[in-house]
């Protein structure tokens, strides 16, 4: 089925029995998860629990060992699928921003619209400037990434992912490299995205944010999806002992 003609029913993203290992290290073990349109699903769990790998698998940056990932009704784990095509419809934002240091902020945002989607440069720049305006950085269009603060760089990275009008946004600990003041500016942007109906899959350590914004919280431990539930239930009254232990540590560290 060609993209864009998928049925509007059923979950946007469906993960079934996903398995991924690096050498002998099993990183994802039989993970199954659905993300409905407009939903914000938050992945929590200790470092190394597989959150990032799960996001990278969805974006086909990693080849899965087993299992099926369906996006918009299309099995994207099928080796015959055009991976570039899939990636161009899914936005991902990384913990370390990964902006292109040799390009201006504007060129970072227009690269994909011009080269991948074949937009005329003028049109791409118009959209990019609108998107930079959206994240509050239209005055920085000519700047180089290294002239921006971490929070500004991350907002550019989000604009760069959003300019392609993705159907799904993957956010991989996007605030972990930021100081508390800058975390706020990025999280409030994500909150706005959620209100506009963007479907998001977010790996984060920001439990407060998870509680306020998430529709579903998933606790990953050792590559397995231990517990899934609405934030009010999972964060306040976890069923699994391991989840309770993890949340207790987080509370001790003052992050909830």
């Amino acid at each position: 089925m060609p993209f864009g003609q998928a049925p509007a029913d059923g979950p946007l993203l469906s993960i079934r029995n996903l398995r991924k290992s690096f050498g002998t290290n099993l990183v994802l073990d039989e993970v199954s998860l659905d993300v409905d349109r407009g939903d914000c699903v938050v992945l929590i769990g200790a470092s190394g629990s597989g959150k990032s790998t799960l996001l990278r698998c969805v974006n086909l940056l990693e080849v899965v060992d087993d299992g099926v990932i369906t996006l918009d009704g299309v099995d994207v784990t099928d080796p015959r699928v055009d991976a570039d095509r899939v990636r161009s419809r899914v936005g991902i934002v990384f913990q370390a921003f990964n902006l292109f240091p040799h390009l201006s902020v504007l060129a970072n945002v227009t690269l994909s619209p011009v080269k991948v989607h074949g937009l005329p440069r003028a049109e791409a720049e118009r959209r990019a400037l609108a998107m930079l305006d959206r994240v509050g950085l239209s005055d920085k269009a000519a700047a180089r990434p290294d002239e921006l603060s971490g929070g500004q760089q991350q907002r550019v990275a989000i604009a760069r992912a959003l300019v392609n009008s993705p159907v799904l946004m993957l956010l991989d600990e996007v605030t972990s490299a930021l100081d508390p003041e800058l975390v706020g500016e990025v999280l409030s942007l994500l909150r706005e995205l959620k209100d506009e109906g963007m479907t998001m899959l977010i790996a984060t350590h920001e439990m407060g944010f998870a509680r306020q914004v998430a529709d579903t919280v998933c606790f990953l431990d050792g590559g397995r999806l231990l517990e899934v539930g609405p934030p009010a239930q999972l964060l306040a009254d976890p069923q699994q002992p391991r989840t309770r232990q993890f949340l207790a540590r987080i509370i001790e560290a003052g992050r909830l």
Binding site: R56, N59, L61, D84, R85, R87, S88, R89, V90, G91, I92, F94, A96, N98, L99, F100, P101, H102, L103, L111, S112, K115, V116, H117, R160, A161, N164
Partner: peptide
């Protein structure tokens, strides 16, 4: 490698990632 990952995640092909992201930085 994260630069290549960022480029590929935007939908750029391997050749495009090399041409527009990797080579300009490498040559500099």
């Amino acid at each position: 490698p994260s630069q290549r990952a960022a480029a590929r995640s935007l939908g750029l092909s391997n050749a495009q990632a090399l041409r527009y992201v990797v080579l300009p930085q490498a040559i500099r």
